[in-house]
Design a protein around this nucleic acid. Sequence first.
DNA 1: GTTAGCACTCAAAATATCCGAGTGCTAACA
DNA 2: TGTTAGCACTCGGATATTTTGAGTGCTAAC
Lengths: 337, 337
Amino acid sequence: MELTDRKLKILQAIIRNYLETGEPVGSRTISKYTDLNLSSATIRNEMSDLEEMGYIVQPHTSAGRIPSDKGYRLYVDMLMKEKADEMASLKVELDNKTAKLEVILKETAKILAHNTNYASLVTTPQYRTKKLKFLQLSKMDEHNLLAIVVLEGNVIQNRVVATEGPVEEDTILKLNLILNTYLNGLDLREINLGVISKMKQENPKFATLLTEVLDSIADCFGEENIETFTSGATNIFKYPELNDSQKASNLLYALEEKKQLTELMYSEGDSDRGIQVYIGDESPLEATKDCAVVTATYHLDEGVYGKIGIIGPRRMDYEKVVSSLQNLMSELDEIMK
Amino acid sequence: MELTDRKLKILQAIIRNYLETGEPVGSRTISKYTDLNLSSATIRNEMSDLEEMGYIVQPHTSAGRIPSDKGYRLYVDMLMKEKADEMASLKVELDNKTAKLEVILKETAKILAHNTNYASLVTTPQYRTKKLKFLQLSKMDEHNLLAIVVLEGNVIQNRVVATEGPVEEDTILKLNLILNTYLNGLDLREINLGVISKMKQENPKFATLLTEVLDSIADCFGEENIETFTSGATNIFKYPELNDSQKASNLLYALEEKKQLTELMYSEGDSDRGIQVYIGDESPLEATKDCAVVTATYHLDEGVYGKIGIIGPRRMDYEKVVSSLQNLMSELDEIMK
DNA sequence: GTTAGCACTCAAAATATCCGAGTGCTAACA
DNA sequence: TGTTAGCACTCGGATATTTTGAGTGCTAAC
C-alpha cells in the first residue's frame, strides 16, 4: 500500500496530538484538528490503513490510536530533514570564563534538563587522542607524589603516585624536566613503548621512578575515564506513562549508575556530527525501552568529542529537543575552541 | 499513666514487627510474637494505653497499630543507650591505598547504600580549619595559571587563575616560593589580612598577581565547597510507603539537588561524635517528612569533619543503620588519620 | 488482673453496573 | 470511485455495591 500525502498528514496530526495530550487520539479529533476537511469516517478508513502499515497501533479495540515506534521513526526522520539547519534561539547562560571543564558540563546538563523538562546527560570528552599540554610532579609526603596532568583544552587531572622509597626534591625537578621534554605535545597513542624505553635508557637512574609515574598517569587518558553528569532525573515523573514505580525505578537506577548510559551514548559509533535518536525498543538498553533517547556530539578538538543527550518518554517533543541539543552542542563547541 | 516494663516490651514488639512487615500490627500478632504469654485481649488493653500515651497510633478504626514518631523516638533512644559501643562486624572493602578522597567517599556511599538498602549520603569534609600543605602554581597558557592546592589529609584541589597579562616562567617560580613561605601550615583563619598585606608589602612587585591568586584559591577552603555524594537513591522504591510518585519524586529531587540535604546534615551543629536521628516531622526538610534520616560524623583531623548519612522510611532498621554508620565512621577515621 | 466471647467497624478486595469514546461496517450519495 | 452519515458493537475506565476479614472495645466470667 502506498503512503500517500494525505496519510502522511494524518499520521503527523496523530503524532502531534499524541505528543500534546499523551492520550490515544480518535478519528473525530483528527477530523477537527487538521485542515483537511475530512469527516471522521474517512479518517477512520485512512487510520485503518496506517495501522495495517504499522505506523500506528490501538492499545485496545475501542480506543484511539497511538504512534508505534515505526511511526515515531518516520516522523523523526522527516523532522531531521526539515530542521537540519534551522536553529531555535535558546538563551544559554554558560559562563565561558570558567575554565574548569567539569563545572561547564554540569551546568550544561542542568540547562538542558531545565529547558526540555526531560532528563539530561552530558559526558566528559574522550581524551584518547588528546595531547599532553604539561605534566607537573610535586612531593606530597614521603611516599607520595602528586602528578598534575594538563591536557589540551585545559582538562586538568590529578593522580597520586605512590613511590617505593622517599624521593628528593632535586629528583622531582629532574623528573619534571625529563617527562615534559619527552612527552609534551604527544597524545596517548604516541606515548608508546618506544618513547618510554628511550626515556628510560637515556636516564637510567630514574627508570624505576619513571615507570611508577607513567603507570599512574596512563589512565588520565583512558576511556574508563569518561564521566557522565546527569540532571533533571526527576522530570520523568511528569510523564504518566513512565510514572510507574517499576519503570521509574529502573530508569532512575540507570541514571544513577550512568555506566550503561555512557555506553549507550557511545555505542552508535560515529554518526559524529549528527543527532542520534533511539525510540523505544530501538535502544539496546533495557531500562530505556519505554523511552526515547536523543544524543548529540560536541567537539573539543579534532578527534576529541563528548556526548550530550536527553532521555524522556516516547512522546517526546523531538523538535524542541533536537534544536536544544544543536544549540548547546554548538555552544559547547564554541567554548571549547 | 506509667510506662511499665510490660508496656515497653509490647511497644518494642510492635515496632520490631512493623519494621519487618510495614503493615499495622494487631493484638493477636503480638500475643503470639512475644514470650509474654498474654492473650490478645490483654494486649489490647495495653495497646489501648500505649495509644493514649501517644506511642502508637491507629491508621483507622479497625486496623492494627503503628508506631508514632514519639514511639520511634523512644525506641531509638533506648537502642542508642544499649548499643552505644557494641559494633557489628561489617566487612568494608575500602581500598585505603587510594589516596584520592573523592574516590573513597563515593565508594563509602555505595557500600553504605548497598549494605543497608536505603539511600546514603556522604559529604566531603569541611576544610575551614584545615591547614595548607603546599601550593603550586603552573603556567597553563598566556592568560591562565593553574593553582594546585594540597591540604592536610591529601585533599587536592585545583583552580584556574586568570591573570591580567602574560606571566613569565620566572615570576611563577618566585610566586611559588613566596606563597609557600608565607602560607604553609596555615589554615583559613590564619590566612588573614595581616599575612596577606605583609606578603604584599615585602614583595611589592607581585602585589597584583598575589591578589589574583589568593582570590582564586580562597574558596578552596570555603564552606560552599562541601560536596555531597549520594548512592542507592532508587532503594526508596523498595518501601511501599515511600513508593508513591509524589513522595518519591520529592525525595529523589532532594537527593539529586543535594544542597538542602547537605544543610540538613550540618544543621544540628555539633552533636559531633554522636549519631543524629531525625524521625518524620522532626526533620526540618519538607522532602524527608515521611522518612527517617540518620547521620553520623567522621573525623579527618581535629576540627575537620564530614558527615555520612542514611535516608529511608520511618520504619528503618535503626540497629543495623546505626551500627553500619558507626562502622564506616571509624573506618573512615582510620583511613584519614 | 486475665481471659473468652461476641457484636461491631471499616479498609481493602472482589464484583457488578454504567458510560461513552471510538471502531468497523453498510448503504447512500456526489 | 471516493466520501460520508448512520448505527450496532466493543471494551476500558469510572462508579457503585457487596463481601470479606482483621482488628477493636466491651462485658462477663474466671
